[in-house]
């Protein structure tokens, strides 16, 4: 089959971008979407043109590295699938597809379809963990976890951190992402000690990163490749409310590294300390 593409090309964060049209005549239905782009890139390189930059790693739908908009849809038309797991049999001969990077203020474009999602890492760093030092854990079966809680935690923990939820949201909110971690740890006995503090610092960090507020539109959950349900946002809101009402003055959320721009480490002078 033959596919026509309109791809966002942008050389770097500092450059202007724009759409460029391509024609891929030799597509087969068993190719994955990214393999179709590999085929395009191979031709571009042979012609001496810069290939389209896009992120991918596992190509199995689990690492969360891939992702862009296909005709405005995060990860393309297939429900509960990443773009690396979407095969060309879901498209028709002659289709015209427009590919563009995640669009959100908190995700600056680095090149073509690649964006900087460091903001999501900083949300986790602000509290998305259980504080337990290596070697200090009790015997694993000492704390029973009801199967329902374990299953619910697993469902929420399945988030792959790809950012599709943010890209789908008209407010560019990271509520589904944040809520999934709050829920994962919040339903487990191991996560109780820091439950209130966690929800406050994580939501605070998300706001500081420039993600918008959740107005329960639900677009995030519809495009989530891991099938995370809106329920995680409701849980986060409830935990937040309880935490806010019972918050003590001295319990300020932990400060986290300042929101960084897409500027990279060598734009500052390399470290020069005596070692």
């Amino acid at each position: 089959m033959r596919i026509f593409l309109e791809i966002w090309r942008q050389r770097s964060a500092a450059d202007e971008g724009g759409f460029v049209r391509y024609d891929v005549p030799d597509v087969t239905e068993h190719m994955s979407f990214l393999e179709m782009l590999d085929v395009l890139n191979r031709r571009l390189v042979e012609a001496g043109d810069p290939p389209v930059a896009f992120d991918s790693d596992c190509r199995e739908g689990i690492c969360g590295m891939c992702g862009f908009l296909v005709n405005g849809q995060p990860h393309g038309p297939l429900r509960n699938a990443t773009i690396c797991q979407t095969h060309m049999r879901h498209f028709a001969d002659g289709d015209m597809l427009r590919l563009e990077p995640w669009r959100a203020a908190a995700f600056p474009v680095l090149r073509d379809l690649c964006v900087d999602r460091g903001a999501l890492d900083r949300i986790i760093a602000s509290g998305g963990y259980v504080t337990v030092r290596t070697g200090s854990a009790p015997e694993a079966n000492a704390i029973p976890v009801p199967k329902e809680a374990a299953d619910r935690a697993m469902e929420a923990a399945a988030c792959i951190g790809c950012g599709a939820c943010v890209a789908a949201c008209p407010n560019a909110s990271a509520a589904l992402f944040t809520g999934s971690k709050v829920t994962h740890l919040g339903v487990l006995p191991q996560g109780q000690a820091e439950r209130r503090r966690r929800v406050v610092s994580m939501t605070e960090q998300a706001r500081a990163e420039g993600f918008g507020h959740c107005t329960t539109i639900g677009a995030c959950s519809r495009v989530c490749p891991a099938g995370i349900q809106l329920e995680v946002i409701a849980r986060m809101n409830r935990d937040w409310l309880i935490a806010a009402l019972s918050r003590r003055e001295e319990e300020e959320p932990v400060a986290i590294a300042p929101r960084s721009s897409p500027m990279r480490f060598y734009e500052q002078a390399p470290p020069k300390t005596q070692r």
Binding site: V130, P144, A150, M154, L188, Q190
Partner: peptide, 12 residues
């Protein structure tokens, strides 16, 4: 032990 304490949702 370590992973269970971190909240890894192992099957139960």
């Amino acid at each position: 032990d370590q992973c269970a304490a971190q909240g890894v949702p192992f099957a139960r």
